[in-house]
Amino acid sequence: MNLNEIKFRPLEKKTQVIVFDQKGKVLETDNTLVEVNPEGVNIFEDTILCGMEEQFLSLKKGEQVELDCIHTDFFGKESHYDFVVMRLEEENPSYGLVIYDFGAQYNQLFDLQQERNMAQIQSHRLERENKELVDEKTTIERLYNEMKDDSSSSQYILVKADSLLYNLDFKEILYLEAYGDYIKVHTENKVYVTHNTMKRVEEILPANRFFRVHRSFIVQLSKIENIEQMSLLIRGKDKVIPIGKSYKSILLQKMDQL
């Protein structure tokens, strides 16, 4: 089989055929794509088939190897090629190398592939950043809660009463009571009267420890002895504090129940 016999195949326009022997020496070429001078050119040394002799020399007559979508410089012309190598003769073995130049087609494929890869890389990056943000949020929340617990167990508040500033430990406060334009701060041993509003005090006190149970009362949750229908009793005191209708359900939510 020679070059012309191979050419009966329905070849694409941009196609070149090279016939070579088992040593890689070029026997024939039609030079339709690139100029190949048979003198001094060896297929196994000067093309991408370099290093693949064994694979091709083991082909039997009629067998072929296809290598598609190869981006390379082929005798000075860089493009995307498909290569087909086939064994032509058993005696005095010769081989046919058919080269298809699919540069234009693969350029279109490149655009699609580039877009797909970029989208996937971006998607993975966003996924990772999102996970990092969630982890960061969890860490911040944990640290905040730890900090809040630490500070609430040892925090003090200054209460101005009788022209003095009293440094009260939160732990001492039983409850607070509205008293006109003033607030009465009830502790175990003493009542402090200070000029302030319930709204302001409610904002200052830590929400995890104090809760407004009535428009006139804020209690420290740990000081509650029991809760009745619409009132509660302060631990160790006989003081009954009313619970406002609108506050009760939230109060019960804040306190763990068996």
Partner: peptide
Amino acid sequence: QYLTTIGVKIDK
């Protein structure tokens, strides 16, 4: 610049 590879690119 990221330029995706199509098929295989051969260099030596």
